[in-house]
């Protein structure tokens, strides 16, 4: 991996605030606002689980990545539309999803207005009476600064630690 340059302190704080704001927006179910104001049109949003392989096995030709999410803007738009439909009974009564973001590292990206952001996340999701689910994953993000000076998510690669989905599904904002 090529060496990345950390950003200045003010930018680090700015990025941190944006990430916190994003999770709050999603927690408050402001899906459309999130998509319209915080997400770039050329977004790539992926969540990948890894198949268990022996370290020394380099002969097997099969893919190792197990995608759980592989979305573009249109796909995210459909997911938002699902929630907006007023018919989504699986989140009625509402689920509660709380993100914890830590180990934040912010680097200068390929262009002056792009940032590469690493973080560790733990998300606790509650639904129905008895279902409490915890998910642990890393996120590699690219955020881009627009002409209006605002940061928007351009790419997110979620690196999921669990091999099997213990909490039912990954159908929540990761």
């Amino acid at each position: 991996m090529e060496e990345l340059n950390p950003v200045a302190h003010e930018i680090y704080i700015e990025v941190q605030q944006v990430l916190f704001k994003e999770t709050r927006m999603l927690r408050e179910e402001r899906w459309r606002e999130w998509l319209e104001t915080m997400v770039e049109k050329d977004i790539v949003y992926r969540a990948i689980v890894s198949q268990l392989r022996f370290r020394k096995d380099n002969r097997y030709t099969g893919e190792k990545d197990v995608p759980s999410l592989d979305e573009n803007w249109a796909g995210l738009d459909r997911r938002v539309a699902q929630m907006e439909s007023g018919m989504q009974w699986t989140t009625d009564p509402a689920e509660r999803v709380r993100h914890f973001i830590t180990n934040l590292e912010v680097f200068q990206g390929k262009t002056p207005n792009e940032y590469v952001i690493y973080s560790n996340c733990q998300t606790v999701r509650n639904r129905r009476v008895y279902e409490e689910m915890t998910y642990c994953y890393g996120r590699n993000d690219i955020w881009r600064r627009g002409a209006d000076g605002k940061l928007r998510l351009a790419r997110r690669d979620v690196d999921v630690d669990e091999r099997f989905v213990s909490g039912k599904n990954h159908n929540f904002p990761m």
Partner: peptide, 15 residues
Amino acid sequence: LRTFGTAGMLESDDS
């Protein structure tokens, strides 16, 4: 993936 994957919209309905 969008419909019946582990983050699938319809998969979550069914389960």
